[in-house]
Simulated scan of single mutants.
Amino acid sequence: MAMEDFKAAIYEGRVTDAASNVIGKPLQYFSEVPLNIAVVGEPGSGKSSFVNAMLGLRAGDPGAAETGIQTTTVDVKAFPHPHLLNVIFWDLPGKGAASFGEDVFAKINLNRFDFFIIVGAQRFRTIHADLVNEIQGMSKKFYFVRSNTDLDLEASKRQRPSDYNEERILLRIKDDCHEGLRREGATNPQVFLVSSYETKRFDFPLLWERLKNDLLGLRRKAFLLNLPSISLPVLNNKKTAMKKQILIRAFWLWIFAAIPIPGLSYFPARKVHSWCYHNFGLGDLSLRDLAQLVGKTAATLKAVMKPLSFISVFLWGFAELVRAVVIIGDYTYFQHFPLYGYLLSGGISLLSTYVMLNKFVSNATDNTQRVLTEALMCEAKKSI
């Protein structure tokens, strides 16, 4: 029901009501929202084994991810969690993994996922930094998991048995991860040292508890970030409906074509432009209320809006100039009332005005989507 109210408010130009309808919901409201968790990292870092560990499965079990010594994941594969409702782990190819000479990871649209777990088997590397920057660029969250911790400890013990100190080694590994993440601008980075084969050791239990505690916040964030895509077809329907009204308004503006002064129709056209923006909920008062709701300023929301393109304005102005020249030229050449000039300039004005008003509607539609995306993104950042 709340989703229908959201769509209705968007269609009616009540963007603040639409946003408040979902922002004010308690966390429990989002308990069944699907959550898509992408497991990413370099090739061979143990992503598939980690996915199996999170699912409570071993390699070879029905429904388990395929694992092996060599890189085995070359496609995006979904693994619904058997106990967490609507939580899907996605096993992604390693960043830099090649298939038929192509980087298969580069073709994946990461924005389709709601949350990320970066798995690294070595020291913090450039690949990890690139992933962190890409994820943060989408305003999404992640955990950093250092896999194969048991193997790291065994290697350290073999190399320097007399100086072996498990606690100190684990702290050094975690500090390296924290340092790398902070260099990339990650605030309060969540780092977990795990072994996918010994899930009761190290940070695996802590990781599991943290995920369960963050789950509702992550679901809420995913829901809010997906709302703009839900609003898009609603806005497009509204645009179609409004364009049917535009022809009538274009006829009203047509009467100004009778006066051969370039740009005279600018002022009534400007009123139509304001009508479009208010109809979509982009008036100053509406933007102020929306900004207050999400804890931002109206200027922040206005900053994402884009004006009409220069080419559109130029062509409209050029058409206005042409129609004036047609009338004046008709009168000067024939020395009588410029009947034909009025008819021709009227046709030019009607066509150019109709095209321009349609661009007003399209521009308002696009800006509503941008404002809504910015407002919901601001709110989504508060989720966890």
Rank of each mutant, 00 (worst) to 15 (best):
residue 9 A to Y: 11
residue 11 Y to W: 12
residue 27 L to W: 09
residue 31 S to M: 12
residue 35 L to V: 04
residue 41 G to T: 03
residue 41 G to V: 02
residue 41 G to A: 08
residue 46 G to Q: 02
residue 47 K to I: 00
residue 55 L to D: 00
residue 58 R to E: 02
residue 58 R to M: 01
residue 59 A to Q: 02
residue 65 A to P: 09
residue 66 E to M: 06
residue 68 G to W: 01
residue 69 I to T: 07
residue 81 H to G: 08
residue 95 K to Q: 15
residue 100 F to D: 13
residue 102 E to N: 14
residue 104 V to T: 09
residue 109 N to T: 12
residue 116 F to V: 10
residue 117 I to G: 03
residue 128 H to T: 10
residue 131 L to Q: 05
residue 132 V to S: 06
residue 133 N to W: 11
residue 142 F to V: 04
residue 152 D to H: 00
residue 152 D to M: 00
residue 167 E to Y: 03
residue 169 I to T: 02
residue 174 K to N: 02
residue 179 E to I: 05
residue 186 A to S: 15
residue 188 N to Q: 06
residue 188 N to Y: 09
residue 190 Q to P: 01
residue 209 E to R: 12
residue 213 N to R: 13
residue 220 R to M: 14
residue 222 A to S: 15
residue 223 F to R: 05
residue 225 L to Y: 10
residue 230 I to G: 04
residue 233 P to F: 07
residue 234 V to C: 01
residue 239 K to N: 12
residue 246 I to P: 06
residue 255 I to C: 10
residue 267 F to I: 10
residue 271 K to Y: 07
residue 271 K to F: 05
residue 277 Y to D: 06
residue 282 L to V: 07
residue 290 L to Y: 04
residue 293 L to T: 11
residue 300 T to N: 12
residue 301 L to Y: 09
residue 302 K to R: 14
residue 304 V to H: 11
residue 308 L to W: 15
residue 309 S to N: 13
residue 315 L to E: 13
residue 318 F to C: 09
residue 320 E to Y: 05
residue 325 V to T: 08
residue 332 T to D: 09
residue 341 G to Y: 06
residue 343 L to W: 08
residue 345 S to Y: 10
residue 348 I to R: 03
residue 356 M to T: 07
residue 358 N to E: 14
residue 361 V to S: 08
residue 367 N to W: 11
